[in-house]
Structure formats: structure tokens, C-alpha cells
């Protein structure tokens, strides 16, 4: 097989599910033996399926946590559970004024180089997501963690400007992932959102992989 005949996802899924027979199966096996790209897709697919199978439908919090929560709940006076809305607004205004004043003082004193970091969108806990989205989360989690760790180890040998470029793009992707997850929590059966979430994770894995393959500073 040549590179033009990479195995498509549907056929790869059939292969994993043991639905291919005879020559079909042999052809896929032969191709996998010589094609790093397809072999890597196969490994990711298998890892995704394993993670999905291992994922429980519901997760009970450990008993100790419940005991702790129960113990604390009655002690709180209901009126003190949450600050009143006006108090939050006032606190926010004070914070904004304080932050603006400090920034203005700093800017007046000297040129400031600001490392911009995109504020992450409000994150949604995994438990709030529908099971397919949790499977997608779990499927990519291992790959992302491993690539993150590998990149952290290489950090010193890469140009800081390059690291900044990579981090800026990772921020863009993380914001997109957070938006898709939040939308899925509101609309759990939306398949388009699932596709978009998976595509965003693909972008992240791909970018991390490429960052790990960048040339070091000499």
C-alpha cells in the first residue's frame, strides 16, 4: 500500500471491532505494519475505546467526602452561604478600580511588557457532560498529558519566543474546547458539538505533537 491509500477511520474502526475478514483484514494488517501514521491512529482509537469502556456511567464521591460535606452543611447559616449580589458587584468595582490604578501607575513609570494570556472560558466539570463527551475528554486526556509532560521537559531547549507562540495557540484551542464543553452541557444530544469538541482536541494533540518535534536551539 502506498501513502495515498491510508486506512480511513471507518475501516480502522471495523478492524478494531474485528469486523473485517480475510483479505480485507490482511490488507489492513499489512498496511499497519508499514505505515506509522495509520498505526498511530489505530493506537489512539484503541486508547479512546479503552478509556470509554473504563468510564463509569456515574461516579459516586468517596464516603469520606460526603461525610465531610454533611458535617459542614448545617453549620452554615443560610444567609451567609452566598454574598448578596450588590456586595459582589461592589467587590467587582473595587477590584476593577484597584487593578486599573495599579496598571496606570506601572505604565506611567516604565514600559511594561505584558505577557498576554487568554482568559480561559468558564470550564464545565466532566460530570455535567453527556457520556459521549466524557468519552472524548477521556480519550484525549492521556495523549495530551503525555505530550504536555514531554514538552515541559523540552522547554529549556526551545527558544522562549517559540514557546510563547505555542502557548498562545494552545490558549486559543483551550478556549474553544471550553466553549464546546459548555455548549454540550446545555445541549447534550448535539452531535455537531461532539464533532467540534473532538476536532478541537485533535488540534490540541496535533499542535503538542508538532511542538515536541521542533528543532532545539543550538
Amino acid at each position: 500500500m502506498t501513502r495515498n491509500e491510508h486506512i480511513d477511520l471507518e475501516r480502522l474502526s471495523d478492524f478494531v471491532d474485528d469486523r473485517l475478514l480475510g483479505d480485507d483484514r490482511d490488507a489492513v494488517q499489512d498496511h499497519l505494519a508499514s505505515c506509522l501514521s495509520c498505526a498511530s491512529h489505530l493506537a489512539r482509537l484503541q486508547s479512546l475505546l479503552e478509556a470509554a469502556h473504563a468510564l463509569p456511567d456515574e461516579i459516586e464521591p468517596p464516603p469520606a467526602v460526603w461525610a465531610d460535606v454533611r458535617e459542614r452543611l448545617p453549620r452554615r447559616a443560610p444567609s451567609r452561604q452566598f454574598p448578596q449580589r450588590w456586595l459582589l458587584a461592589a467587590a467587582a468595582v473595587v477590584l476593577v478600580v484597584l487593578s486599573s490604578t495599579v496598571t496606570a501607575l506601572l505604565v506611567r513609570r516604565q514600559p511594561v511588557i505584558v505577557a498576554t494570556k487568554v482568559a480561559p472560558a468558564v470550564t464545565v466539570a466532566s460530570m455535567q457532560l453527556p457520556p459521549p463527551a466524557r468519552s472524548i475528554d477521556a480519550g484525549y486526556a492521556v495523549a495530551i498529558r503525555q505530550l504536555d509532560e514531554a514538552l515541559a521537559q523540552r522547554r529549556a531547549e526551545l527558544d522562549p519566543a517559540t514557546i510563547a507562540k505555542v502557548e498562545a495557540s494552545l490558549n486559543v484551542i483551550d478556549v474553544a474546547i471550553a466553549e464546546a464543553r459548555r455548549a454540550l452541557a446545555d445541549d447534550p444530544a448535539n452531535r455537531t458539538l461532539l464533532d467540534i469538541l473532538a476536532a478541537n482536541y485533535e488540534h490540541k494533540v496535533e499542535l503538542l505533537r508538532r511542538a515536541n518535534e521542533l528543532l532545539p536551539r543550538t
Partner: peptide
Amino acid sequence: PSWVRLKTATGDIVFNGGSEDAGLTTVS
């Protein structure tokens, strides 16, 4: 190109030509 993969993070991609199998990917 018969088979083409163009990938950037923030770089722009312009592909003026066809392909049997093309994959164009960017972040921003």
C-alpha cells in the same frame, strides 16, 4: 500534489491547486 498536508498554528495557508487527497489545518 497527489497527497498533501499543510499545517500551521497561526500562519496563513494558500493552496492554489487541486489534489487527490488534501488536508489543510490551522489554529488561527
